[in-house]
Amino acid sequence: MTAPATRPVGPATPRADDGPPPRNPRPRSWGDRLLTAVGFLVLAFLFAPIVVVIVYSFNEGRLLIAWDHFGFGSFAALTERPAIRSAVLVSIQVAVLSSLLATFLGTMAGVALARRPGRWTYWFIGLLLLVSVTPEIVDAVSLLPWLVYLGSDAGLSVFNGGIVRLVVGHSLFATAVVSYIVRARLVGLDESLEEASGDLYAPPVRTFRRVTVPLAMPAVLAGYLLSFTLSLDNTIVSAFVQVSGTTPWPVYVLSALRSGLRPEIAAVSTLMLVLTLVALGVVALVLRRSGDSATDIARTMGGG
């Protein structure tokens, strides 16, 4: 350790004299500027298609790709076309239900992971990792035969319902995400409050309900809203498990791809984007209120 410290003293002393003054301003206005340019270019790249979709939602032409003239006509489709309206409603309904389910399951699992660790934790985290790492298409194709089997051969007719199938499909990955988020938050918090509650003769159930859950609340809310947006987005699993009659919005768009995209698709997508942004904004606000830094928020939103 002492070796590198002594090194600059000898040969680097002359460099240290004339080095810093030019070295500091020059590279900062060169390499840093390049980095900043790259950063802004990447941001532009990330937003380009979104901006395009928003702009093209005001296209009054017949086809999405061919720009005709500006107008709000395509937004009327939401009220005029029953297929689009029902697809959006199915999506929102499924998003609310599946994220409630995932939050319920994930919160309990996250609390157990953070507060009752043991040998089982490895198995459970392994399972969660497996769920989040499996390609969605594999999830989708494996869920379809299973739900068909449960619905027809096993006689559990609940699983023939379109909404139930979609809720099941959307809840899997979301459960893993909520578990990660809740666990991460509780691991970062001291257990002394819960111990104090126990010392004050609160039974475990009450401690859980009155101390642990409020402590985990920001993570629970963030997890809920993230699962909500995940479910609104889900295309692949939905395309496989859906039953005709309860087509969610992304699957409607996917089928519209084959018959030619119309500007209505962009218009409704813009509205869904606004909905997602509101949900995300609330997540960021909640996390910030609870004192997370930009890094913590990034880690939380990145799914652990």
């Binding site: 937003f47 979104i50 999405l64 987005d233 992304p250 768009v253 791809l257 869904m272 984007l273 997602t276």
Partner: peptide, 18 residues
Amino acid sequence: MVPYWTNFLVRTIGWQVI
């Protein structure tokens, strides 16, 4: 994060338009 959480399919359609 905003692009990541907007609809995957819609973003891709944006590229189709571009």
